[in-house]
Computed example of a mutant assay.
Amino acid sequence: MDFQPKSVSGAAGGLSLAVCIGQVVLLKNKKKVFTMDNLDYEAEVGALHPGGSTAAVGGADGKVRLYSVQGNTLKDEGKTIELSGAITDMAYSNDGAYLALIDDKKVTSVFTVADDYSVKNNFYGHHAKPVTLAWSPDNEHFATGGMDMMVFIWTVSDPDKRIKVPDTHRLHHVSGLAWVDEHTLVTTSHDASIKQWTIKY
């Protein structure tokens, strides 16, 4: 990379999307194939649709820009999603049906891809900025972690149904999330520890 990467996302067909400081890069089989410079916004995080058809890039301005992946290029179709604050993380569900986003105004939002990215649900619960998000393999649940040292597990179809995991890491906030399977969540933190949690719905 020419500049420091902030986020990376992978999809089918060897595609990867790297969001760097001042630059968005599309890679194919580990080689750079397309670069977007001179952006008129500050790109924070990117997510590739699992099918490799769309690249979503979230900005500090609270907007998500949807680019279509055409061969080895990204084409701006002029489609955006507006959120309440700067986007801190986002990810498509594993089946590509939903796009979940978190912003610095403590709002978690899920959009339905097939319905032209209409809002499915908004979720509230974090007391401080959420910074990381990960989908469960079941595509019905996803986890968010924040500066409030809390992790929430949300249910896509029901915003009121949530599992709260307080004080996940007591010395520092959660920095990363990953699912091992539908009932096993891993959290990382700057406190130099990795923890595994069993989630029961």
Rank of each mutant, 00 (worst) to 15 (best):
1 M>H: 14
4 Q>G: 03
9 S>I: 12
11 A>E: 02
22 G>D: 14
28 K>T: 11
28 K>R: 15
32 K>T: 15
41 Y>M: 10
46 G>R: 03
47 A>S: 15
49 H>L: 11
49 H>S: 15
50 P>A: 04
51 G>N: 15
52 G>D: 03
54 T>F: 07
54 T>Q: 03
56 A>Q: 07
56 A>K: 04
64 V>F: 10
67 Y>S: 06
69 V>I: 15
69 V>D: 02
70 Q>L: 10
71 G>C: 09
71 G>M: 08
72 N>M: 02
73 T>K: 13
78 G>C: 02
84 S>D: 15
84 S>Y: 12
86 A>R: 06
89 D>P: 04
95 D>P: 05
97 A>H: 10
100 A>I: 10
102 I>L: 07
106 K>V: 02
109 S>N: 11
110 V>P: 01
112 T>W: 01
112 T>I: 10
114 A>T: 07
115 D>I: 00
120 K>W: 08
123 F>Y: 15
124 Y>S: 15
126 H>F: 10
127 H>C: 02
128 A>P: 01
129 K>D: 09
131 V>L: 12
133 L>D: 02
133 L>A: 09
137 P>I: 03
138 D>Q: 10
140 E>A: 13
145 G>C: 08
145 G>I: 07
146 G>S: 04
148 D>Y: 02
148 D>G: 07
151 V>M: 08
151 V>L: 06
152 F>G: 02
153 I>C: 08
154 W>E: 03
158 D>A: 13
158 D>E: 14
159 P>F: 05
161 K>I: 07
162 R>F: 08
163 I>F: 08
169 H>M: 00
171 L>T: 08
171 L>I: 05
172 H>L: 06
175 S>I: 06
176 G>F: 07
178 A>R: 13
179 W>R: 08
180 V>L: 15
180 V>E: 11
181 D>K: 08
185 L>C: 09
186 V>L: 10
186 V>R: 00
187 T>Q: 09
191 D>F: 07
196 Q>C: 13
201 Y>A: 06
